[in-house]
């Protein structure tokens, strides 16, 4: 890494289904270059990945078909930073409480409960204190949102709501039950992109970017 202006971090957004363009816009606001990821080959040359909100069962089925889930897991295991919001948080969890089996990326030492706050009529917005981001609180948009039911020792809880953890991180993953991409507050995306910059600066990278989408 040398020169006056470092190249923008290259961040993929899992694009099986869900709020993809909202994350691309938020990442663009904080100086990242983005690409939609729908197949394992789309991961080549990326510095970070976002798994957006959507339906986790759809992600599991469609991404499972193409071998994308294990490919994503392998990248994260090698240290690629990842941000998961809502369904993205579910995909990164090691387990789901009270639900049937469904394909996940896994790897994060948390157990989540899907639709924990109830059906859409109970979806809500509320101020959420995130001490790691300082004041003021974030406006949390919770849509049929999950919460974190249990977390292991490697997990730092970033925020709680109603007595339940709703945001957390470990060495490579940041997860939220709410949707920072649906507000204009870019602090959480900035935290993620800073982590991506630090990580890609420290690592030897290979592969080249083939094109934006």
């Amino acid at each position: 890494m040398s020169g006056a202006t470092p190249p923008p971090p290259r961040i993929g957004v899992l694009a099986v289904q869900g709020a993809v363009s909202e994350h691309q816009a938020a990442l663009g606001d904080v100086g990242a270059w983005t690409r939609r990821v729908r197949a394992p080959g789309d991961l080549v040359g990326l510095d970070g990945l976002v798994i957006p909100g959507g339906e986790s069962t759809t992600f599991g089925l469609v991404a499972g078909e193409s071998g994308l889930l294990p490919a994503v897991r392998a990248q994260i295991d090698e240290g690629m930073p990842v941000l998961g919001t809502c369904a993205g948080m579910i995909m990164l969890a090691n387990g789901i409480a009270g639900g049937g089996p469904q394909p996940l990326v896994g790897g994060m030492d948390i157990v989540v409960r899907r639709n924990a706050f109830g059906r859409q009529v109970h979806s809500f917005e509320a101020d959420v204190e995130v001490p790691a981001l300082g004041a003021p609180p974030m406006r949390g948009i919770f849509i049929r949102a999950p919460w974190i039911e249990a977390a292991g020792p490697s997990i730092e809880i970033l925020a709680e709501h109603g007595g339940h953890p709703v945001a957390a991180r470990d060495a490579t993953r940041i997860v939220t039950a709410f949707h920072p991409e649906l507000t204009g507050d870019r602090r959480l995306h900035r935290m993620f992109v800073e982590r991506v910059r630090a990580s890609s600066g420290a690592q030897h990278k290979e592969g080249s970017v083939v094109g934006a989408q």
Partner: peptide, 25 residues
């Protein structure tokens, strides 16, 4: 439940937000 954090349900962001999560589906 803990009485500390106020929740606003049925806001435009929350109502239109679910449709955003359905996109591409």
């Amino acid at each position: 439940a803990n009485g500390a954090q106020e929740r606003a349900t049925g806001t435009e962001t929350v109502k239109a937000g679910l449709a955003r999560m359905l996109k591409g589906g």
